[in-house]
Design a protein around this nucleic acid. Structure first.
Lengths: 232, 232
DNA sequence: TCGTTGTGTTATCAACGATAACTTATCGGT
DNA sequence: ACCGATAAGTTATCGTTGATAACACAACGA
């Protein structure tokens, strides 16, 4: 005899058949009141917030299941498909949000800094701070593969979202002022970005390798990178 | 009525109930002859080879399911558990193998190179070549999260496997010869490693961002990094 | 008043990781 | 030549997952 819910019709209105029910009974069902007409987008945002909180708490995107998100939000799991075509799209939407947060953090970081080299340094520090303060979000944005694809972006999108042009401009200014040796600014910007990304992604992906204080490593790497661009 | 296989006993010896059978009928069952006594480890290697080939072909570790591996090897999926406690351990064993391959590639790369700075450059190039020639393996080793954890390694293990000491030695030699400015060699080695890792991991994780020829980027980054360590 | 549409829900599926229980081949000892 | 032990597997089955089809209901406009 199958222990399954009896299938076809043996289910009247109020029966306590909760098919997707929280199996582990952790945390209450978190009831949600249905959105009014025209406010369906509300659920979308709640889903993204729940997804992010689950990645942060569990430390892995694998645990962000449609059921876990639905339970936290207080809706049924198929409701997620009203707003996202599949689980990957949901997570990629979360990544998009994170990219815009990172962009804001970077443009805030250089407010009022005139010296191009200082601007370079501060942008790099702010980038690293974001990554290390939001390691799971950063990992999802930059490293994870979801349903066979990573959250891919074109060069143009990167330049727009990542405040990449801030770095390019700082390098261009540095070359103009004579502090930096002439090079292709976009290339140099990529190299500096890759350097910071490399450091933080190692810290995030290999937490057991004890390299010391991340901030020191970041500063060392940034100074080394900038020195490598200097006029001599 | 459940459409499930009827459960308890309605199954005689030769019935064509193939529970784990290849659902999509892609590729034949790939029969395998049982190992002789004492040669059980053979299957372990076949499993690892199959796992690697699936990552490479599908481009994602998610597709390396126990069933897919078993089908390719020609055994049943529970047989995998004779050699690995779980799926993550299987994939981590694959990572371990890759780390040793990378280590070999690096020590081969510097054969007969005397100049420390050239050694630094060639090690970096060899590292990048390995990563870009085996992007899926590199991704699995360095970026992916499997069952909630990444393939984590201690600093000591890294130094041993990654040929990290090659880099440290090259920097120490460079400082001694006066080519490089005095710094902490381990710190500088980390920074250079992180730089190369940053470049290749961006290329692997964001393939749609067209940055141009990877080799050029790598060379630019390496030269910039090394210049940043030079005496001035 | 009623039907259309937005906002959901319940029931169900095939594929997945994992385990329990069973089978079969090889070996050393007699 | 036989046998019992054990290495090397297999079959059946479970609970969970992503996804879909079919249904439910409330709010708005004609």
């Amino acid at each position: 005899m199958s222990s399954r819910p009896a299938a076809t019709k043996a289910r009247a209105k109020g029966a306590n058949n909760t098919p997707d029910a929280p199996s582990t009974s952790t945390s209450p069902p978190a009831a949600r009141t249905r959105s009014k007409r025209g406010e369906g987008r509300q659920l979308r945002e709640e889903i993204l917030a729940a997804a992010e909180s689950i990645v942060v708490e569990t430390g892995t995107v694998e645990k962000v299941t449609t059921r876990a998100v639905a339970q936290r939000v207080g809706c049924s799991s198929p409701s997620i498909y009203l707003h996202f075509p599949d689980r990957a799209s949901m997570l990629f939407a979360m990544c998009e949000l994170q990219f815009s947060h990172l962009g804001e953090a970077l443009s805030n970081a250089i407010n009022g800094i005139d010296d191009p080299v200082d601007r370079l340094l501060e942008t790099g520090r702010a980038y690293a701070r974001f990554a290390l303060d939001h390691p799971q979000q950063y990992r999802t944005m930059m490293m994870d593969v979801i349903a066979g694809v990573s959250y891919d972006r074109t060069l143009e999108e990167m330049r727009a979202d990542l405040g990449f042009d801030i770095v390019v401009q700082a390098i261009t200014d540095g070359i103009a002022s004579g502090a930096l040796a002439p090079t292709e600014p976009l290339l140099a910007a990529f190299a500096i970005w890759a350097h910071v990304h490399g450091v933080v992604s190692i810290f995030i992906a290999k937490p057991h390798a004890d390299w010391g204080d991340p901030a020191d490593l970041i500063d060392f790497a940034l100074r080394q990178g900038i020195d490598g661009l200097r006029s001599r």
